[in-house]
């Protein structure tokens, strides 16, 4: 930890660090944290799941997790390629703070928090507050992200992740959406959480859309859901080689619609299976 206050730099999967390395860039001490067992692995604690900072995407995919994490697992499968998933870590994805970080929308939809290890102990920050801008995070010198904490979610929660790109693999998204939808015993949506990535400097939740979904019957959402461009107007996409701003807004609305339908559908399936178990 002491190294991090000076010229030290934390590295883990290196899937962003090494591509960013330019000839001529002077490198200080590199602190590789991938062999610290405490920082790795997934376990349940009290009221949350703890995903160690250096847990790779592959480890996340392989770890048995509740259905609510399906969106996160789908995102993990779409991170770059198997090679990247084998090296890249969940905390690295967040700390790199790319607007197109695949892990961020599903973690936002899960209300994830970031555990920061400081010389004085540790603090927990909401993910929403941790990423403050393009390539900017609320991490002070000498601090280290130690884990991602995901609060326990209601059993009847379905989640989804949709990534839009111009090709199948190794693609940086034009837009992406993750939804997590919880329902009560009657199938009424109690908590809808939808997050959009690649359409603003930092991936963001869509509170208006969530409000419109809360209280609706999940089944009716599966049958019919409209998401208008106005409902995602809070996004501020840029135009780049991957797509125009106008296209991104349109695509975000359509992806929100599809992601919400999928999550609602999975939530009702969950509900049905819990009911079946209760009946037995």
């Amino acid at each position: 930890m002491s190294q991090l206050d000076g010229d030290g730099q934390v590295v883990a999967g290196c899937t962003d660090f090494l591509p960013g390395l330019r000839r001529g860039s002077r490198i200080g001490t590199l602190v590789d944290i991938t062999r610290i067992p405490e920082l790795r692995g997934i376990r349940i604690e009290m009221d949350h799941w703890r995903i160690g900072a250096t847990t790779t995407w592959t480890e996340l995919i392989k770890h048995p997790l509740p259905k609510a994490f399906e969106g996160l697992k789908l995102a993990a499968r779409e991170v770059g390629s198997v090679q990247i998933q084998n090296s890249g870590t969940i905390a690295g994805n967040i700390c790199n703070a790319s607007p197109a970080a695949d892990g961020v929308p599903p973690l936002l939809a899960l209300d994830a928090k970031v555990e920061v290890c400081t010389p004085a102990g540790s603090r927990v920050v909401d993910l929403e507050d941790f990423i403050t801008g393009v390539r900017r995070i609320a991490l002070k010198p000498g601090e280290l992200v130690s884990a991602i904490l995901v609060p326990s979610v209601a059993e009847s929660t379905g989640s989804s992740f949709l990534k839009l790109g111009s090709r199948k693999y190794l693609v940086i998204s034009i837009a992406m959406v993750s939804a997590a939808i919880s329902v009560d015993r009657s199938g009424t949506i109690t908590d809808a959480r939808i997050a959009v990535g690649s359409c603003s400097p930092v991936a963001t939740r869509m509170p208006e859309l969530e409000k419109a979904l809360n209280g609706r019957q999940a089944r009716s959402v599966v049958d019919r859901l409209e998401v208008t461009v106005d409902q995602v107007a809070s996004l501020a996409p840029i135009k780049d080689v991957r797509g125009s701003a106008e296209y991104r807004i349109h695509a975000a609305a359509e992806l929100c619609r599809r992601a919400a339908i999928q999550a609602a559908g999975r939530a009702t399936c969950e509900l049905a299976s819990t009911d079946a178990e209760t009946a037995e």
């Binding site: 590295v11 999967g13 290196c14 899937t15 090494l18 591509p19 590199l30 590789d32 592959t58 770059g80 390629s81 198997v82 090679q83 990247i84 084998n86 090296s87 190794l170």
Partner: peptide
């Protein structure tokens, strides 16, 4: 590519494929 974009340098580390260009 030296950036993990092409995968030509793939090796197995403990049995898992990774890009050698993205590994210290």
């Amino acid at each position: 590519c030296n950036a993990g974009d092409c995968g030509a340098c793939t090796v197995l580390i403990n049995g898992d494929p990774v890009c050698a260009c993205l590994t210290l």
